[in-house]
Write a protein that binds this DNA or RNA. Structure first.
Length: 334
DNA sequence: AACCGACCCAACCGCAACGGT
DNA sequence: GACCGTTGCGGTTGGGTCGGT
């Protein structure tokens, strides 16, 4: 049973016994080097095959089974923005693998969009008969794409600035930042990026960066170059307590995400600047909804962002922001 | 029951990216 | 900067399943 390659390594479907061996080994020793793993685990497989089996099938945090309507919408929206970047899309759906999303797209969603008269690759309408809502999508996708690019640039710039200023201090020299950048991109948000680089492979979300920017801006510009563990812990606690709380009650979009930052913000300057900062995050987003007669349809939704100070707490309302933006990681491209 | 085509999805393959030397 | 080993990613394949005839 089973195929073998020229080096005698097994190929093809995994047996329950092989799964058990791999699971038991990773449980005891972790992943480590995939190349060395098969021999140590007593498997006649190549490391690549073991890695794939673990990532796409055996990992305990994988959610299996039917995709929910919310997941479908998220995939379609993200595909419009990111294209076939399955791993990036999978990052927004933490319990689904890129392979699973890719398969679901190719076998189901792509066909559904085609049936609706939408080109699944460009997300543009194919013919005259397409809904007027769909006609707006490409424009919105471009807009969103530009937004994501801009956010990625922010992260890149921050990283560069961090490296330039590394081991000195976190003062930002405005002349090193393009004057073309919008207000929020000119703000320093370096400590959180450094914290992420040092402690986690998880990418920061818009929300995380918002917190970082506001926190840094509220400080007296000069920050210690090395982040003490107490600061890191504090950051982690702030974020842990402030994941946006979705109040979605059913499948219809009525997102109202609230972030509370439990820090002291008595900085008058920050309070003055806050409205324009919030404005930068507001805009129009494509939103897919399920229509019982016509299947999926695309609507424009207006997401707006507002902030209030209350008892030294900053409350950020992500009004009508789609989850995929509020909770989305931002690509850190070198 | 047998055949066939469509569909689904786990797994493979090749290439790109990354990190260490 | 070049090289090399390893890992990650996206496209593709192949085999099992299902439904229609």
């Amino acid at each position: 049973m089973g195929r073998f390659d020229k080096e005698g390594l097994k190929k093809g479907p995994w047996t329950p016994e092989e799964d058990r061996k791999l699971l038991s080994f990773i449980d005891k020793h972790g992943c480590g080097s995939w190349r060395a793993l098969p021999a140590k685990a007593g498997l006649q497989r190549c490391g690549k095959s073991c890695r794939l089996r673990w990532i796409n099938y055996l990992r305990p945090d994988i959610k299996r089974g039917k995709f929910s309507l919310q997941e479908e919408r998220t995939i379609i929206q993200l595909h419009a923005l990111l294209g076939n970047r399955w791993s990036a899309i999978a990052a927004y759906l933490p319990s689904r693998t890129d392979n699973e999303i890719k398969n679901y797209w190719n076998s189901c969603l792509k066909k559904r969009l085609t049936k609706m008269g939408i080109d699944p690759m460009t997300h543009k309408p194919n013919g005259e008969g397409s809904s007027k809502y769909v006609a707006n999508l490409s424009h919105m996708a471009e807009w969103e794409s530009a937004r994501l690019e801009a956010e990625a640039r922010l992260v890149r710039k921050s990283k560069i600035l961090f490296h330039n200023n590394n081991s000195h201090n976190y003062n930002i020299n405005p002349s090193t930042i393009s004057q073309q950048l919008p207000y929020y991109q000119q703000l320093p948000c370096l400590d959180i990026l450094k914290a992420w680089q040092m402690t986690s492979t998880k990418l920061p979300t818009i929300n995380d960066i918002t917190h970082a920017i506001l926190r840094n801006n509220s400080k007296n510009k000069k920050l210690d170059s090395s982040i003490p563990s107490s600061t890191l812990n504090s950051s982690e606690n702030i974020f842990a307590n402030n994941a946006p709380t979705s109040k979605v009650g059913d499948d219809h979009q009525n997102l109202h995400n609230l972030s509370t930052i439990n820090s002291c913000f008595e900085d008058d300057h920050l309070q003055t600047e806050l409205p324009s900062f919030m404005q930068e995050f507001s805009g129009v987003f494509p939103e897919y909804t399920q229509n019982s007669t016509n299947g999926l349809q695309v609507d424009n939704i207006m997401g707006s962002c507002s902030g209030d100070f209350e008892d030294n707490k900053l409350l950020i309302n992500w009004n009508n922001f789609p989850n995929y933006l509020v909770n989305s990681p931002i690509d850190c491209i070198n």
